[in-house]
Amino acid sequence: MTGEVAVLGAGMHPWGKWGRGFVEYGTRAAREALADAGLEWGAVQSVVGADTVRGGYPGYVAGATFARALGSQGTRVTSVYAACASGAQAIDTARAQILAGMAEVVLVVGADAAPKGFFAPAGGDRPDDPDWLRFRVLGATNPAYFALYARRRMALYGDTVDDFAQVKVKNSAAGAANPYARYRRRVTTREVAASPVVADPLRLLDICATSDGGAALVLSSMDAARRHGVADPVRIRAVAAVTPRYPRTELDLPDIASDSAAAVAEPAAGFRASLAQGAYEEAGIGPEDLSLAEVYDLSTALELEWYEDLGLCGTGEAAKLLRDGATALGGRLPVNASGGLASFGEAVPAQAVAQVCELTWQLRGRAGERQVPDARVGVTANQGLFGHGSAVVAVR
């Protein structure tokens, strides 16, 4: 175990399509996190910003951008980019600074102003990037990519389009109770089925939107938390980040990376499972210890993949776990009690930070109508482009 840091404050800017700049969203989230921590901006010794590639130069130096927006006071700044894993790796950077004694109070901020439609490659031609090649050579945009996962699950495990729709129904019920969610309305399986097909078998309501939003955390050393009068804070106990292991490479989809026989063979454990295992080992826990999980539901079918990768059930058993109600609010182990990306949409550098905000509120017992009873341990998980990801374990 490498050490724990305290979560003193959590804050968010509501998700939506607001038509304003990412700096405004991140600054509001930061101020909410500072207020939640009971601290003034001057108490912050370091700012770690999760970068956005859509925000021009300010987006590439997000740490400095947010520090300037909050008021230049000489704080250390760091900027982190890891695609959809940016927020969690920003948390890991902040944790490392605290554990190394470089700072006692660190502010982590992620925010984005996303375009309409699905994300296209940014930053020009990148022929050395497998994800750029996936878009440009295969024509496999993200919805098509998600549909391949869904088709594989249907072929291997017998998952159905109704199973996928039930994930959306579950997450919309949780999102309806979350004031920060973009979509706050319950949907039915009939509504999912009636939505347009985007990439067969996935329909519009099976796939998350792109959104504007921001999230922030105030992290500190345990000593600083105690001096601040917080005797039992939520604690970050582990942050794991891994890349794939050969032969499961960046795409992590054997049925498009090799011959067609792979599509009907039992897939080997991929890097997402290794990611979860790394987080569990560092935290000294197992999936049996979890109270809840926040996972990266870019599509409904992908959420089911995470159940298995996190060890919540055996391979091919995710749909049964869902059908039994285990992952819904009130179930044995709620997944995406926040409403997930199904309810928020993607605001790329903010979403992994937002996941930890949700764990913080849940572990404090302050999640309102979506509260998981007696929550003590939570895990987050997400996957970034170019084949890497992150997982965070928080405890109380």
Rank of each mutant, 00 (worst) to 15 (best):
V5Y: 08
M154K: 01
D252L: 14
V264P: 00
G339Q: 10
S86P: 03
G101Q: 13
E4A: 15
V77H: 11
V335G: 03
N336L: 08
D131V: 13
L156V: 06
L304I: 05
V47M: 05
A94C: 08
A265F: 02
R151C: 05
A173D: 06
L204S: 05
G229T: 08
R364Q: 11
W361V: 02
R376T: 12
A375M: 12
G378N: 09
G74N: 07
A155K: 06
W15K: 07
A64S: 15
T78F: 13
V295E: 08
Q277P: 00
L310T: 11
R126T: 06
R332V: 01
D223M: 01
P58R: 01
A391H: 09
L310Y: 05
D128E: 15
V7A: 08
G314M: 10
G229I: 05
D374F: 12
K320F: 00
D374L: 12
D162M: 05
A30T: 12
R227I: 00
R190G: 13
R136S: 08
A279S: 08
R186A: 15
V239E: 01
V106Q: 08
D297F: 11
E346T: 08
D36I: 10
E288V: 02
I256H: 00
A265G: 04
E305A: 00
A269S: 10
T327A: 06
Y25L: 13
Y246T: 09
S86T: 15
C208H: 02
A69E: 02
G11Y: 09
L99R: 14
A318I: 09
I91E: 02
A29N: 12
T300Y: 14
P143R: 13
G56S: 14
E346H: 12
N178R: 08
L363Y: 09
D36K: 03
G16P: 13
V230M: 01
S86M: 05
D162T: 15
T75G: 01
G311I: 11
A240G: 14
C208Q: 05
A240K: 01
P349Y: 00
Y149I: 02
G384E: 04
E358I: 10
D289Q: 13
W15Q: 11
G286L: 12
F271K: 02
M12R: 10
A240C: 12
L292Q: 14
A150K: 03
S338T: 13
V44M: 05
T141C: 02
G387P: 04
S260C: 03
T300P: 07
P334G: 13
E317P: 05
S274V: 00
G378Q: 06
G314C: 07
E308A: 10
R272Y: 02
R370G: 10
F119H: 01
H388Q: 14
G213E: 00
S79G: 14
L275Q: 07
Y183E: 02
A174K: 11
A193L: 01
A69H: 05
K116D: 05
D297G: 10
V80T: 14
G42Y: 00
I285S: 07
A33V: 10
T52Q: 03
V198A: 04
